[in-house]
Amino acid sequence: MTQTATRPQLKAAAAATFLIFGINGLVFASWAARIPAVTEILQITAGQMGTLLLCVAVGSLIALPTAGHVVGRIGTANTVRAAGLLVAAAGVGIALSLAAGAVSGTAISLFFFGIGIGLWDVSQNIEGADVEHKLGRTIMPQFHAAFSGGAFVGALIGAGLSNIGIGLPAHLLVIAAVVAAAALVTPKYFLEHVPAAPRPAGEAKEPRAASAWRDGRTLLIGVVVLGATLTEGAGNDWIAKAAVDGLDATQSTGALLFAVFVLAMTAVRFFGGRAIDIYGRVAVLRASMAAAALGLGLFVLAGNIWLATAGAALWGAGAALAFPMGMSAAADDPKHAAARVSVVSTVGYIAFLAGPPLLGYLGDLTGIRTALLAIGVPILGALMLAGAAKSLRGK
């Protein structure tokens, strides 16, 4: 739990959380934007690169279920510090392994990179939900907008460094230093978490963190988040490729459609909190999933690039708010927030692990643009289960 915070402390905590989300996005994009360089440096195939990426996913999936317990023991600030330092150390390991051309060293470093990212992701969302709860207004989408904005900046930096010939190992070493500094300094402005008071003799023990996996509402929220994550992830992974393959667009045009998707999502995350406060999570979640479904359909069925662009924008706008709303819903009860956010994050991350290859395999049969229609199933599932995200304090 946290002590009562003053208004200046809440503002400082909100700013620190915003920065931590942004750095997280910067780290993600700094790696993802230069994946082609990894295949070139290590001289590996696309399939072997997929195996390396699986190392990150496995590390995250191992860390996510335990992250709530870690936060409960040492607090969000210390968890972010530990996770950030682990990510920085893993980044150094990746850089040195790439410089030596060592595939095994890169794989091991990516595994620990995934563990650090998983711990970081859960702890920042718990802190964000705590700040949101105490501010009394919806701010979680803005934190996730910071992640999107950080990723956008990271991608631009990666593209720029690649263009001027700066190697990936040097790039990662600088990013590791930035992450280590941010992880050590920024969390000191988080809300202060204090240990729970000792239980009187004979009082029943609090439920174990594992009980969150048996909580029906938490699992339903997790399914909603899984659908939202797959919706967002499919756009990130396949919009550019689908535009090139299905609309005969150039690679630069495909990249622009991806940029439209990301910018629409980021803008709605920045300004969508007010709509959630006015209309409630359930109504906004349903509207979001409906917009995502319409945008997806328009993108896939459009006969020209202009309609496809409009579809990409609507798709991104619809995908923007569901994940942060799911995190807020999971953290409605502060007493169980750490465990429940950990569960919902774990369920949602399954989409990152399973979604891209499944769509890729389906795309081999039908074409990737047509294969994207499969995302309509989890979108409709999230739409139908939106009521699970209803606030415990209202709509």
Rank of each mutant, 00 (worst) to 15 (best):
L226Y: 12
V223M: 13
G150N: 08
S123G: 12
A331K: 12
I117L: 15
S252G: 07
T229S: 11
K205D: 12
V122Y: 09
G202L: 07
L220R: 15
G150V: 04
E127S: 06
G202C: 09
L362Y: 04
L314A: 15
G75H: 01
K11F: 04
A249P: 12
L359N: 11
L168P: 01
I108K: 07
V38E: 03
L285P: 12
G84Y: 11
L226I: 06
L219I: 14
Y189E: 00
A13G: 02
T370M: 02
A283R: 14
R274D: 06
F143H: 09
L307F: 13
A33H: 02
D277A: 02
A63H: 02
F190L: 03
D332I: 00
W213D: 06
D245W: 01
G59A: 04
A275S: 13
I375E: 04
V38P: 03
W120G: 05
A242W: 02
I23D: 03
T229N: 11
S288T: 03
V185K: 09
H171K: 15
A212L: 05
G216A: 15
G93T: 07
L135I: 07
I115K: 05
M140Y: 00
T66Q: 13
L383T: 08
A242P: 12
L392K: 14
K205M: 09
L296C: 06
S288F: 00
A243C: 06
A151H: 08
A264T: 11
G381M: 15
K205L: 05
R208H: 13
S391K: 10
V224T: 10
A63R: 04
S109T: 05
A151F: 07
L383H: 11
F299C: 05
W238K: 14
A46S: 13
A46D: 15
V260I: 14
T66G: 04
G254S: 05
F261N: 09
A57S: 10
F112G: 04
A264Q: 13
I115F: 00
A181I: 13
M325A: 10
I350F: 14
A331C: 10
A212G: 06
P36F: 05
V343F: 03
V38C: 02
A291Y: 07
A339Q: 10
A170D: 14
R393Q: 08
C55E: 03
L373P: 05
G297F: 01
T266N: 14
A182C: 15
A88I: 07
A95V: 08
F190N: 04
L110F: 05
V343Y: 05
G363H: 08
I35H: 04
V300A: 03
A329H: 13
A12V: 01
P65I: 00
P169Y: 12
P357F: 04
L307A: 15
P198S: 08
M289G: 09
R137P: 04
V194F: 05
D332E: 10
